[in-house]
Nucleic acid binder design. Sequence first.
DNA 1: CTGAAAGCGCTTACAG
DNA 2: CTGAAAGCGCTTACAG
Lengths: 340, 340
Amino acid sequence: VAEPGVAVTLRYVAKHAGVSRQTVSNVLNAPDRVDPVTRAKVEAAIMALGYQPNRTARNLATRQAGLIGYCLARRPGHNPFMDTFLHALSTAVEVAGRHVLLFTAPEDLDDTRVYADLVAQRAVDAFVLSDTVDNDPRHTWLADHEIAFASFGRTWPEQGEQPGSWVDVDGAGSCAELVAGLHALGHSRIAFIGWRAHTGAVLDRQRGWRSECERLGLPHGDELAVHADSDCLDCGASAAAGLLDSGHAPTAFVVASDLLAVGVVREVKRRGLRLGHEIAVTGFDDSVLATSVDGGLTTVRQPIEEVAGTLVELLATPWEARGVLLRGELVSRGSAPLQV
Amino acid sequence: VAEPGVAVTLRYVAKHAGVSRQTVSNVLNAPDRVDPVTRAKVEAAIMALGYQPNRTARNLATRQAGLIGYCLARRPGHNPFMDTFLHALSTAVEVAGRHVLLFTAPEDLDDTRVYADLVAQRAVDAFVLSDTVDNDPRHTWLADHEIAFASFGRTWPEQGEQPGSWVDVDGAGSCAELVAGLHALGHSRIAFIGWRAHTGAVLDRQRGWRSECERLGLPHGDELAVHADSDCLDCGASAAAGLLDSGHAPTAFVVASDLLAVGVVREVKRRGLRLGHEIAVTGFDDSVLATSVDGGLTTVRQPIEEVAGTLVELLATPWEARGVLLRGELVSRGSAPLQV
DNA sequence: CTGAAAGCGCTTACAG
DNA sequence: CTGAAAGCGCTTACAG
């Protein structure tokens, strides 16, 4: 029972237990080095006083921040599982006894500048990156400055290796699986719809579509692969319209995002085509949109919890750069009733 | 230009500028107390060395954590604007020279326990709460323990005042506006659809619907107000079906969430009714779902940036509990083409 | 206006 | 096994 108004510090606990401050510290940080009897005495005092070490003081002494920096993407609301990702990331980081420190990058500032400041102030021990773009300058900068980080997503560098540690979901593999499943359903003209931004990830998915079509002897030319201007619902609808009006109309669409896919579904329904029967559509991400489609949208769930756990693991050995590729999980729904 | 390998500390800057450490500190924290000439000299050294004070050391000396704790909701993915909110919150907190520390509450632990630990460790200076539930135990606990916090959302206490500082969006006001707009469009039977959880917020919206209907002389009995089991798409559809099959079928639906509203839209379309003409539907939140509806869903945008800014303002004066009610913004789309 | 002193609450070698 | 000492990198009264 602590006296009210008195801060419960190491010194206070020590006085209470009748030992020195260092012994209390040892009980906390090297319990095996202290006599069982004294240890019990000190632990009792810690319990009774509800003592918990002051984080800041401990951090200063150990030269750590106890925090992992995570920069929120500039355009919020575009990443359908940001919420889930942050929850999984925070949980994984907490298991490692740390916490996530959030920050944002002002529009007018150089992207790496805010990272540099945080490092200069020793405000974080390492960074986790997501919303990766092609040739992302952050990755090269952090790697060049030997700052610990782990990235969700590759940067698809034009030359050389991916800088630093990363974990990603195998988009090519998932799209190949989708094509195989659609083929088993009887589809022989399968189109791909992506969008221009995030080229690396989209092209990766497209590669999976193309190679599996090729393997199965299905058409896989550029006339069946469309890139919408951006990742939006209307863009998906008009991309689908273009393909359906062409001389080589597909019966199935492998679409690189749920949002685009919902647009494709809208266009398909507008034309009176029976979704999941004459026409199949698949998305990517398993966002809330995927269940807003009547009958549901077949899509690929990214294993977010596993991604987060892997990121924290990678951070444990910051000196060795490693890459981990995770499998996406096919979620079969009415829009393309695959046999899984 | 700092020597490589040498940490740039206050002491290093002082030596470089030929002054004492305290003077450097004064330049940083009380520049008016130091002679312009020495100040310029010190500032030059700071610039040249790229010095930034070590956060941890500063925090220990000033007895602050420089961090605002924010607990991520247990069920991620349910709050459509969590992403936007966190971005806005982090930005507002950064303006105040601090950062957001994320944490989660384990399923098996008492909700307030994790807050208590963070406080005991002096890991945060204050908390921001959201995903508030009725009679939220966190609010009373924090207020009882005189811990600084600000809440997005009220807890609708059964008795007494709302504990602590809060900011909320006026759901009743927004729903009243929706009813008025629908009435101007010619609708005279307007139903309300909510869901059982988050009763306080839903009931608040329902109150707005009811009072405006009453004011306009429109029916507003319980037969026109339905509460779905939960906030889900199918739930919205079946709630709409029930109302449309009843003897007093409405021509307009004021729905307490976008997700439920999309379900209502699905049911309306399934029946071949022309959305936005014979039947009007409005949602709440202006989530990505609202644009996934063909023609768009009329909905209420919550002023998230303003909410975040207000939370940080409230945190500036933790000793005085205040409440701020913000107006929602009507976003008119095809599902209910209001004159705004 | 400037700097020597004390202190923030810990941890980590290092004697005893 | 235990404790006196030094130090983490700052800030804040307080003399000079």
